[in-house]
Design a protein around this nucleic acid. Structure first.
Length: 294
DNA sequence: AGTTGTCAAGCTAGT
DNA sequence: ACTAGCTTGACAACT
């Protein structure tokens, strides 16, 4: 079991998510930003290793505008050495990496323009993991997409779209249950017809499920991961009190977390902590894991 | 130097 | 009708 947090580390003065406005795009700006992001990524990973975090989600802005027509630079080639170096470090440390394209990526969209953009953007995420030289246990996670007032039809459209995706995406793509549109059960339906692994989000499952407990859901999801995919990835979060349903909490509730990992003690999976204060909560969580699991 | 509106891109439920 | 929320921040123009 590995533990991690997504995208940002607030403890160190370095971010791998620097970007800029499209209007100020230039070759120089692009290259210096990416250079900075890659250096910070390395720094964050080293910090993580020191603290005991061996799961990390790389933020989407790592290569700004990578899937936009404005970007004409072969960044994989240009930063080949840097990617290789970081990738080697990840492998040496036996770290797990994931990426999560943002909300604009909707594979089951009705519009061709959105579909094309979505494929390009997903492809970009996969290219980063390829450039790092990571195996197919490094994943790119997406939700099924929109409902458009006709859920079954929209779910089927995802399946059709999935089947036509290029192999470099298929080998990394996993789907995640969301908190109000597509539950674990819906994801399992897609899995049955496509073989796509299901990343299990415990918080989303609490918001929206079909009667399965978190543990039952987790077990079902874990069976969708084949050897080449690695062990199940889990997103873990808590509801923020007095906020609308689905809002992530500011801090982790260690009591709840302890209960969760105690309940699932016999199961093996990697946990991504989607808590607003990121590594702060993660540091507490890691202590808890050490107590419960040895 | 600090504050605030805005950023390439979508969709939904809550308010 | 509008907007918070999503994984969310960070940029850039303004005070």
């Amino acid at each position: 079991m590995r533990l991690g947090y997504p995208c940002i580390n607030r403890s160190i003065e370095c971010t791998a998510n620097s970007t800029f406005r499209l209007a100020s795009y230039s070759r120089e700006r692009f290259l210096s930003t990416v250079q900075n992001n890659l250096e910070c990524l390395q720094e964050i990973l080293e910090w993580n290793a020191e603290k005991g975090f061996f799961f990390f989600r790389i933020g989407s802005p790592l290569i700004p505008f990578a899937s936009h027509p404005v970007c004409k630079i072969d960044w994989v080639k240009h930063f080949k050495k840097d990617f290789r170096k970081i990738g080697n470090y990840i492998k040496k440390q036996k770290m797990r990496i994931s990426m999560h394209p943002d909300q604009f990526v909707v594979l089951n969209t009705k519009e061709d323009r959105i579909l094309q953009n979505s494929i390009k953007e997903t492809e970009y995420h996969c290219k980063v993991l390829d450039a790092l030289g990571l195996d197919t246990t490094a994943k790119v996670q997406l939700h099924i997409g929109g409902v458009y007032g006709e859920k079954e039809k929209s779910l089927q459209r995802f399946i059709e779209r999935y089947k036509k995706l290029p192999a470099m995406i298929k080998k990394r793509l996993v789907i995640e249950n969301d908190h109000y549109m597509y539950s674990l059960k819906d994801c399992l339906k897609v899995h049955k017809q496509t073989g796509v692994p299901i990343l299990f989000d415990t918080f989303h499952h609490e918001c929206y499920n079909n009667g399965e407990t978190v543990k039952q859901g987790l077990i079902k999801a874990s069976k969708t991961w084949k050897k080449k995919d690695g062990i199940l990835m889990v997103d873990y979060s808590n509801q923020k009190k007095e906020a609308r349903k689905g809002t992530h909490s500011e801090h982790i509730s260690i009591q709840k977390f302890k209960k969760f990992i105690t309940d699932t003690k016999k199961l093996n999976f990697d946990i991504m902590l989607e808590i607003k204060d990121k590594e702060k909560s993660a540091l507490q969580a890691i202590k808890t894991i050490k107590q419960v699991r040895k």
